[in-house]
């Protein structure tokens, strides 16, 4: 579902973020993307969501080589990739309903189906009944779950998350991670960038570890 073939990424400012990164994440698979801050985790996710393009090498997502996606086709491509962010990226001046419904509104779903699916997505993250609240009225954990509901509402085959538990205390972090696991159980390919050792140990899923822009073996403290 997600394939990196000898991907090399250098930013315009000269920083080399990734060098010769290759991995393959099968459809329905879940993986943690680990590594220190600045190791290149975010770059991997940005390449998957076409927020950046590789300098060299191939990135293939959902059987589509991102090099073949022109700038006009990027929006449609992104609708196939659900994204969750550490800072939620919710629209503060819109109620939860509108925030969650946004991808469907973009996709042009009828009002009736919109209602049904917003409810289903909110139910999924345990926030049914919060439709009319505004993001800042919710706790950090709840906001993150709204972000997840928004990411999955258009049923993307791929879900990526960048440090989704970075701002959460351990209990909430566990709750959010359980949510990703449940989504993976119904067939969504999930990739979560995190450095939360606790969670990595707890969930027995695959790990892709990056050090200085390259795939590396797991550091002993985590692997133990």
């Amino acid at each position: 579902m997600i394939t990196f073939q000898r991907v090399f990424k250098r930013y315009p400012n000269g920083r080399e973020a990734l060098a010769e990164v290759s991995f393959d994440l099968a459809s329905g698979e879940m993986a943690f993307l680990t590594g220190h801050s600045g190791a290149g985790k975010s770059t991997v996710l940005k390449l998957i969501a076409l927020l950046e393009r590789p300098t060299r090498g191939q990135v293939i997502v959902n059987n589509r080589n991102t090099a073949s996606v022109g700038s006009g086709a990027i929006p449609a491509f992104r609708r196939q990739v659900g994204m969750v962010f550490q800072d939620h990226k919710l629209l503060a001046d819109r109620p939860i309903y509108d925030n969650v419904a946004l991808p469907l509104v973009i996709a042009g779903v009828t009002r009736r189906e919109l209602d049904k699916r917003v409810r289903a997505a909110l139910d999924q993250v345990g926030l049914l009944g919060k439709e009319t609240s505004f993001p800042l009225e919710l706790s950090a954990g709840e906001q993150q779950r709204v972000g997840i509901a928004r990411a999955v509402i258009s049923k993307p085959p791929v879900l990526i998350a960048d440090e989704p538990t970075g701002n959460l205390d351990p209990d909430l972090a566990l709750e959010v991670m359980n949510l990703f696991k449940r989504l993976n159980d119904v067939g969504v390919t999930v990739m979560v960038a995190t450095h939360d050792v606790h969670l990595i140990d707890r969930f027995g899923v695959r790990r892709i570890h990056i050090e200085h822009g390259q795939l590396a073996g797991f550091p002993p403290d985590v692997a133990a």
């Binding site: 449609a76 992104r78 609708r79 994204m83 629209l91 946004l102 991808p103 973009i106």
Partner: peptide, 11 residues
């Protein structure tokens, strides 16, 4: 707001 809409696939 525009950035967020583009992030979730708004053309």
């Amino acid at each position: 707001e525009i950035e967020v809409i583009k992030l979730v696939g708004g053309s």
